[in-house]
Amino acid sequence: MDTEAVRSFVRAAEFGQLQHAADELGVTQQAVSKRIAALERELEVRLFTRTARGVELTLDGQAFLPHARSVVAGVDRAVTAVRPGSRALRIDVLGLRSAQAVVLHDYWRSHPETDLDVVVLRVNDPRVAVAAVQAGDVDASFRTVTDPAALPRDVQMIHAFDSPLELLVGPRHPLAPARKLTPPQLRKHRIWVPGIAPRSEWAEFYDQLATAFDLRLDAAGPNFGNEVLLDALADSADLATLVGARDRYIWPTNHDLRRIPIVNPTLAYPLSLMFPRTNPHPGLRAIINHFASLTPLPETAWLPSWAMTPRRSADDIARR
């Protein structure tokens, strides 16, 4: 099977346009069309139907696509494995100040020889991140598909580590003097988490959290970034938000914001890592081993429902 024909099919499926696929591959539209036609003859099925907008996958094309992505990713990895100066390990994190990025930075400081490329996919739907892993655009992604049955067979997902939550408030907030807080103490206080995206894993997390502890979570308004959120907290006597204990936030000294741990139980966000089931990047195992060395949660901890089921963890991988 012509792997460049398979690559042309994958790119055409992603763009929905033969010309866009040709532009990315650096060939003519006619060349892409010929490759796909040859692939269809070899498979004895039609992969696309032509529309006024471009091309759409047939049912056979939809069935073939995840396998085709795996073929392309495997070829790319094979070439990279023998190419001098092979590319860095590319890992998607939610944000460069997120717990995931902080943990990776801690690892890199201890292993500066690691060729690591930390990127941020600007997507909220974890299925898009799955597709990026399948396509080889990233080697791994810190995203969670909360329904394991929906995870493609060619993508593996493990539990990486858990991120305890803290309450972040300004100096005039009534909870600001507290050294620690329990979930019942948060009730009736407005907890602002702007920009919770529908279909995201964190939307499901916050929904379960609010229900479990009767919390007043406010997702109103767009997310204008951390600086705007921190300014609002500093100026307010009743506004609070939730942040991960390992998340990195920086604010002016005069903001005098307070990060207060939540205990009995500790509220924790579970972080998963997705990567190809076959031929993962060779640099990934050492980082997974590093996750296994992180401090575990205390015994009294709350996690969302999907994290309470048996899950394969970094410890399991490290023991292999």
Rank of each mutant, 00 (worst) to 15 (best):
L151H: 09
P152G: 12
R153A: 14
R153H: 12
D154I: 02
D154N: 15
D154E: 14
Q156T: 13
Q156A: 14
M157T: 09
H159A: 15
H159S: 14
H159D: 13
A160Y: 06
P164G: 09
L165Y: 08
L167M: 06
P171N: 01
R172A: 15
R172Y: 11
R172M: 09
A178T: 03
R179Y: 02
L181Y: 04
T182I: 10
T182E: 14
P183M: 08
P184E: 12
L186A: 08
L186F: 06
R187D: 08
R187P: 09
R187I: 05
K188P: 00
H189I: 05
R190C: 07
R190K: 12
R190D: 08
W192H: 15
V193Y: 02
V193E: 06
V193M: 15
P194Y: 02
P194S: 05
G195R: 04
I196N: 04
A197C: 03
A197P: 00
P198I: 04
E201V: 12
E201K: 11
W202Q: 11
W202T: 13
W202A: 10
A203Q: 13
A203Y: 13
E204A: 14
F205K: 03
F205C: 06
D207L: 12
Q208F: 05
Q208N: 07
Q208V: 04
Q208C: 06
A210Q: 12
A210C: 09
D214W: 02
L215Q: 12
L215C: 09
A219Q: 12
A220D: 13
G221K: 06
P222Q: 10
F224I: 00
F224P: 08
G225V: 03
G225P: 05
L229D: 03
L229M: 14
L230R: 11
L230G: 08
L230D: 06
L230E: 04
A234N: 03
D235V: 02
S236C: 10
T241H: 07
T241F: 08
L242N: 06
